[in-house]
Each structure stands twice: as C-alpha cells, then as structure tokens.
Nucleic acid binder design. Structure first.
Lengths: 327, 327
DNA sequence: CTGAAAGCGCTTACAG
DNA sequence: CTGAAAGCGCTTACAG
C-alpha cells in the first residue's frame, strides 16, 4: 500500500537503482531528465523513504541515543533542548532511553537497547556508570559521551561545567566579600559532589582557612529545607547551595526561622535556572550553561570539535551581602 | 564483526530460522535442548539483536515519536517523563522530534520524519496543528494523539486537563471566597487559552457577574510581570494566572509595587509545579497532573483505554485571602 | 521440532 | 548515465 522505490521505478520505466540514486541525491549519476521524471512520480505517489531499510543497509542509524535518569531536574529540559536542536542540525534524530533512578539494571538495559538500534552515538546525562556498563560501552565501538558529569579523566568523552573550578570561583566570590565561615550544602558523594567539595576546600585553603562545613544532600528542595537547621549552630555567614532547588529550600527555611537573607545569611546557588529570579530575594548564582552542555555533547559524540568544559558565569542578584572582615 | 544469527546458527549447527525462533521467544516451536544451546552460543558470542532488521521485516518500529515545541516549559520534563516511563512499560522507545517554535515548516518536517520511521504512534505535545498537518497525519494511518491540548473535538485523540472546567473551578474557588472582581492573566488565543476563557466567563455568568478582565500573554514570567500593571487600575481583588510562571511574575511585580499578596491581591495559578512552593508566599494552584497526561497519551496512542481528560486538583497554599462580600 | 526459501525496502559495487 | 544482482539481518509461511 505504501509506495516504495519499486512502484516509482515501474511508473517511471527505470530501474530501482536509478530511483534510489536520484532519491538519495547521488549527484552526477543521473540525467536531469530522469531526475525530473522520478521526482514527479515520487511526489504524485506520495512516496516517503523508509529509513529503517536505509539504516539496515548502511548499518548505521541517523539517531543519537540519550540515556537519562528518572529523576527529572529543573534543568533537564534545557539539556534535552540543546541536544535536540544540535542533533537536528546534524541530521540526527534523538531517541530517549530511560535509566530509572540509579537503577543498575535499567541503566544496563538502556545501553543495550541503544546498541541494538545501531545508533550513531550514545549520550549519558547525569548518569554515573558502573564498571560493567563502561566496559560494554567501550567494547561496542559506538562513540559515547557523558553529559553534565565529568568522570575526572579525559579518556572518556564528556561535556560539563568544570565543577571543581566553579566551586572555587563561588567560594572566592564569597571570600572576596568578607565571608570566612562558608558552608557547602546539598552535594552528593559522586563525581560532581566530590569535585565541588575539592574546589571549595582548595579555595578556602588558599586563604588559610581550614574550617569547612559540608552538608550532604540530593540537590532537592527538601534537602535544602532540612539542611538549614544543621547549619544554624555552626554560625556560617554564607552558604553555597549545590543547586537552585537546594538554595530555594535553604532560603525558605531561613525565612521561616526568622533569618533574613541576605542580611543575616548570604546564599549563592549553583545552576542559575529560572528558579533564581522567582524567589524573594532573587538568588545570586553560579550559572551553568545547560543548553550548551547539551549541544556540545552532541558535537562531541559526533566527532566534531568541542571542549570538555563549558564556561559558567556568576550572576549577581539579591542573596549575598558583603560583610566586614572579622565580623 | 558484530555477530548475527548466521554466526550463531553456524556455531550451534542449526538453521538461522531456529535461531530466530528461540531468540524471539516463539515458545513451543523449539525444544528445550536447542534453546539452551543457542542461548549459550548467543551469550558467548556477545550477540545483540539488530532491531533495524526486525523493524524492516515487521514493517513497524517499536518506537513512539514525540513531537514537541521548541519553547521548553517548566513542566515539559514531567510530560516527557510520563511518556517515557509508560512507553518503556509497553516496550516502546521514544524518539523526540523538534517542531521549532510554532514553525509550520519544522512542524511538518517532524511529522514526515516520524512517518519515515514507521513509528507505532505519534504524540504531539503542546502543538497546534495546521490543516495540512492534520490531513497528513490522518492519511498516514499511524495513530496520533495530542498531548496537553484539546482541539475541542473527540474526533482526534488527545489527552489533557479539561481546560474549560478547570478555569471554571478556579473561578468558583475565588467566588466562594468572596471575590467578585476577578482577572484572568496570561492566556493565549489558541485552543487552551480560549477554553480557559470560556470556563472563566461561564463561572462568572453563573453568578450574574458580567465583568470580565482578561489579559493575554504567553505563559511566561515576563508576561506576568508586565501584566500586573494593566490590572492595577482595574481594582480586581484576585487574579487567575494562566501558568505558574505568570503567577510568579505577577507576584513579584506586585511585591515590588508594594502590593501585599494575599492581603491586597489574591493569586491562583494554573499548573501547580514546584514553582508554587518556592515563591513567598507559596502559590495556591489548580494543579495539573502532567505526568499522567504524558503517560495516558501513550496509552491512548497505543490503543489502550484512557480518558481524554486527566483530573486536576486545587492545592491551597498561601496566596488567596477570603474577603467579605461587597468589600 | 526444524530447515530451505522468500521477502521486508533500500544501497552499491560491477558491468556496460 | 543506467540496470542486474547481491546483500544488509532478520521473520515467517510452507513443507517435512
């Protein structure tokens, strides 16, 4: 029922080989006359290419697989958006595969599915791979790239912010404004969290401050809310939040506890999504470029040139106060 | 290099037909002995099914196409999440296709791409189709379903909130608390906006209130901020915001103008995402179930039973005050 | 329970 | 510039 190149060939009185050549623009291999004829017939018949057949003979699908965690963040849309647009420009489709929530089984399954589809590349967003998956990926000979997580090595492709540097920058920002008791809230114990902790500690050490105050969490609003209480007895004057949601939780919990931000407590949040301008006061943030992280991970996995680290930016809003030294 | 069923057949001393049967679980067509043997060889060889080949002979891809607008909303993640999980349960992959930003050309292209891939269903999220696309879709004989937009007819599959009813419910909620001067902010002129306007007007008319105050926008934070000024001279006591972002814009602009929420102005927002609990005060909302909208649209397009309208819920937070009648 | 064979819709050397 | 033919990796009647 759906017309194929066979139907076009019959209608035009040429072979399917010729039809294939003009339909796939093998310029120089056909006369203008046949081209015109075939195109007309194809249009009249409502012909549509069967990409599955093409992919089978070419042994490669024009599709990038994106494997993502179940837990949606408020910035995953931006990453997906960047991936989608750039892929589209390169003529690649994007197939999304589910990795559950740090579920080793599902994560493995997603990789297998991507491999079964002969995708041209695999993107792993916010995924921390186990050794087995890494082996599977490496042996598959299909390029893969981690998105928004840096495994600490350049042996594996990845595109993300430079978490260590970014944490150091944020810490310096606060130090420069007179804060000496600075907390770090909501980081996890995986790569991203560890890198931020390292940056935070180094920046502090560089100013001869040994005191560090780190509270772990899961980047969520609830995390932020709960963590505030733990900082209270520690008399920090500023807290770096591991995400906008953590910052919002910290902020709202502080307000409920009667602690004024930024007068009594300064807050800087890492991420810089829309959340930051919605809170009162608006949150000063170390803003990541999630769209670019997504877009460049596509370049990376498709063999185009792209850097591992995407630049970040400090965006000042209303949640930080300068304090006098020794205050 | 990548092993195929041919390799397995050779190693096991059976035909490729038999290999195919056990690998695709055609139970009852093979002996346990051959099954064991073939599975062992497959595993040893690191065999992985080539889904492209399978799709070609079956003439159907186990993939649902999701066509989405470029403009990401703060709830698209939830919709995608719902689609992804449910699709996964039904053994379907999800391929995301870009429709640009109300770009007719790109929108058309996305549909064509979906059709070329012989997908099992097409989901159109937050897309307002033109006549040509609708024809293309209908003639393709592949099931399609609109997600989070109701075209006002049941002739076309769709899953969304009941926008008219939801707006009426929200208006009633405010009326029940003594508000008589109620505004509606940020709606668009397409289906969703029109339906909400209709519900709002009907609820008002049912209480013999003819005064309506409608300000159009694009569901964004900026929209909300700008629109506040337009409501000011109109002395409404309550505003229904067409989205959380509009509500947040309205709220922050009000605070900057020295108008207390909810003391001087009540706000209800339609959507109910995380944004609502982050603002100060937290926003009372008519909460949509985006996850279910996504999940059920998959059921719909795959021919499972699912309703057109997904239930909504009023969630009271801190942005509405009851006023005395005639106040 | 198993095998030989045809076929899904394309692409691409090869020969002319 | 064009055609005949082989082949991509599977599935599935059909016959035994």
């Amino acid at each position: 029922m759906k017309p194929t190149i066979k139907d076009i060939a019959a209608e035009s009185g040429v072979s399917i080989a010729t039809v294939s050549r003009v339909l796939s623009h093998k310029t120089g291999t056909y006369s203008e006359k046949t081209q015109t004829k075939i195109l007309a017939v194809a249009k009249r018949l409502g012909y549509r290419k069967n990409s599955t057949a093409v992919e089978l003979v070419k042994k490669k699908a024009a599709v990038i697989a994106l494997i993502i965690n179940a837990t949606p963040t408020n910035f995953s849309t931006q990453i997906i958006d960047g991936i989608q647009r750039r892929a589209s420009e390169l003529g690649q489709g994007v197939i999304i595969l589910y990795a559950g929530n740090r579920n080793a089984e599902l994560q493995h399954q997603a990789i297998v599915t991507a491999l079964e589809r002969a995708v041209s590349g695999i993107l792993l967003a916010a995924i921390e791979p186990d050794a087995e998956d890494l082996t599977l990926l490496k042996e598959s000979h299909v390029p893969f790239c981690f998105v928004s997580v840096y495994l600490g090595t350049d042996k594996v492709l990845s595109v993300s912010s430079d978490n260590e540097k970014l944490a150091a920058t944020t810490t310096d920002y606060l130090l420069d404004r007179g804060h000496t008791h600075i907390g770090l809230a909501g980081v996890d114990t995986y790569h991203t969290g560890s890198q931020r902790i390292a940056g935070y500690q180094k920046a502090l050490a560089a100013r001869d401050i040994q005191e560090t105050t780190i509270k772990y969490g899961d980047y969520s609003y609830e995390s932020g809310r709960q963590l505030l209480a733990e900082f209270l007895p520690l008399k920090v004057t500023a807290i770096i939040a591991a995400s906008d949601m953590v910052a919002a939780g910290l902020l709202n919990a502080a307000q409920e506890a009667g602690i004024a931000v930024p007068e009594q407590l300064s807050l800087v949040s890492i991420d810089g999504t829309d959340i930051c301008r919605i809170t009162t006061p608006a949150l000063t943030s170390l803003t990541q470029d999630f769209y670019q992280i997504g877009a460049q991970s596509v370049d990376r996995v498709m063999g185009e040139k792209a850097a591992t680290f995407v630049p970040v930016e400090m965006v000042e809003r209303g949640s930080v106060k300068s304090v006098s030294r020794g205050g």
